[in-house]
């Protein structure tokens, strides 16, 4: 019997695709596996141990950087998500308004401008402020992170709002709900998956940032990624693998949660 003709088949495509997936995950899998190596090598397996997780956990610099990363990410995601919700409410489900193009360009700017350029610009600007005010705290990093997190928080919230039925809010207003009550009782309950998704996205983006943090941070303000960047210059031990594995785990968890949130129907 002859074989059925598969219209979607293209010669070699499946081979390349599978190769692609293998190559994409091979380095990550090795990275995770060797984080459990009892020896100092990332090539020769000497047995399973939690040794490098323990050493990372007991490393003061790692502890401080972790706390700092989390503090910045929490603030940045809270600020950027709040701004993004308000901005999304202002820009969706409305007729074209004056200055609309400029507003979208502003919001999406962090996605278009290369990170290194923003980083340098912030270095220059914040250096001016640091000199004139003397303040060198975490606020610079928080503000910088909040800014580049806004588009990431904005996109899922906006998508959610656009998918929402405008007549629901009109129905609420028709049933005597004041504008504030409409927002609290109808808009917000339906928007929350989008808000949560936006906040999570902002959190991960902030947690992962290297370039802008590297340029904006003052002395002794390493976050986990910039600490790791510094470590890569020296002899690398599987301690870095251990930290990476934990960060990778956080990313995977968030991506899955994000995907699930996206599936919640309007």
């Amino acid at each position: 019997m002859s074989k059925a003709f598969n219209i979607s088949r293209q010669n070699g495509f499946t081979t390349i695709a599978i190769t692609c997936f293998v190559l994409l995950y091979l380095p990550i899998v090795l990275l995770v596996v060797y984080s459990f190596n009892s020896g100092p090598s990332v090539a020769i397996w000497e047995g399973f141990s939690w040794r490098w997780y323990q050493s990372a956990w007991e490393n003061d610099q790692v502890q401080e950087a972790t706390v700092r990363s989390l503090v910045i990410a929490l603030w940045a995601s809270a600020i950027s998500t709040t701004c993004a919700v308000l901005a999304a409410l202002a820009t969706t489900r409305t007729r074209k308004f004056k200055g609309q193009g400029a507003v979208f360009a502003m919001i999406n700017q962090p996605l278009m401008v290369p990170e290194i350029v923003t980083a340098v610009a912030l270095l220059i600007f914040f250096a001016m402020i640091k000199v004139s005010t003397g303040y060198t705290g975490l606020a610079y990093l928080i503000v910088a992170h909040s800014a580049f997190c806004i588009p990431f928080a904005y996109l899922p919230i906006r998508a959610r709002l656009q998918g929402m039925d405008l007549s629901l809010e009109q129905a609420a207003a028709d049933l005597y709900a004041t504008p504030f009550k409409v927002f609290r009782r109808v808009t917000l309950p339906q928007l929350w998956p989008g808000i949560l998704a936006g906040a999570m996205l902002a959190f991960v983006i902030s947690l992962d940032d290297v370039v802008i943090t590297e340029f904006v941070k003052s002395a002794g303000q390493d976050t986990l990624p910039t600490y790791m960047l510094g470590q890569l210059r020296r002899v690398v031990t599987p301690e870095v693998n251990a930290i990476s594995t934990v960060l990778f785990g956080i990313s995977v968890t968030f991506v899955i949660a994000f995907t699930v949130l996206g599936k919640i129907k309007n």
Partner: peptide
């Protein structure tokens, strides 16, 4: 009014510094 917070942060920590650069 709703756009103000986002625009403020973006001007302060993204667009403004580019002009200074």
């Amino acid at each position: 009014l709703l756009l103000a917070p986002a625009l403020f942060i973006l001007v302060f920590a993204a667009a403004g510094p580019l002009l200074i650069t």
